[in-house]
């Protein structure tokens, strides 16, 4: 444990709070993944981990290594940027795949909108190859 001994206590407290907060948020996110009853509800759960869960753990890591090496260590921010950019893309692809599969099986997902402004959800089954969004 010699690595930690030179650190000031207030830095250790900041790092500890960040780590535990990030890990707890990620954990609650996967609790949602395990608990929610439908797929479209479950897809919201991992975004907790990818937004603030990852943010807190990475900030904790940055603060820790900056204090440890006595110079700014900010390369962890790359992980945060990659995670922030890639997660929406994968979740969107996955949601569209799920929607496509559900509709191919005849489950009319997305047509039961509350107070729907526009009931055009059925008509876009065939044209999923439009903008790649």
């Amino acid at each position: 444990m010699s690595v930690f001994d030179g650190l000031p206590v207030w830095i250790a407290v900041i790092v500890a709070i960040c780590l535990v907060a990030g890990a707890a948020i990620t954990f609650v996110g996967t609790v949602g993944l395990a608990r929610f009853p439908t797929f479209y509800q479950r897809i919201h759960a991992p975004t907790l981990g990818t937004s603030f869960g990852a943010f807190f753990v990475i900030v904790g890591s940055m603060v820790f290594f900056t204090a440890l090496e006595a110079r700014p260590v900010i390369h962890e921010v790359l992980i945060l940027v990659f995670v922030l950019i890639t997660t929406p893309v994968t979740l969107m692809l996955l949601a569209r795949a799920a929607l496509y599969r559900d509709r191919a099986e005849g489950n009319d997902v997305g047509a039961d909108m509350p107070a729907a402004e526009n009931r055009s959800a059925r008509s876009d089954v065939g044209d999923t190859d439009q903008t790649g969004l």
Binding site: M1, F4, D5, L7, P8, V9, I11, A12, V13, V15, A16, I17, L19, V20, G22, A23, A24, V57, F64
Partner: peptide, 14 residues
């Protein structure tokens, strides 16, 4: 002191 805090926090988060 700071070592104890960090070890516990790392354990909890792991």
């Amino acid at each position: 002191m700071s070592a104890t805090i960090l070890v516990i926090a790392i354990l909890v988060s792991q």
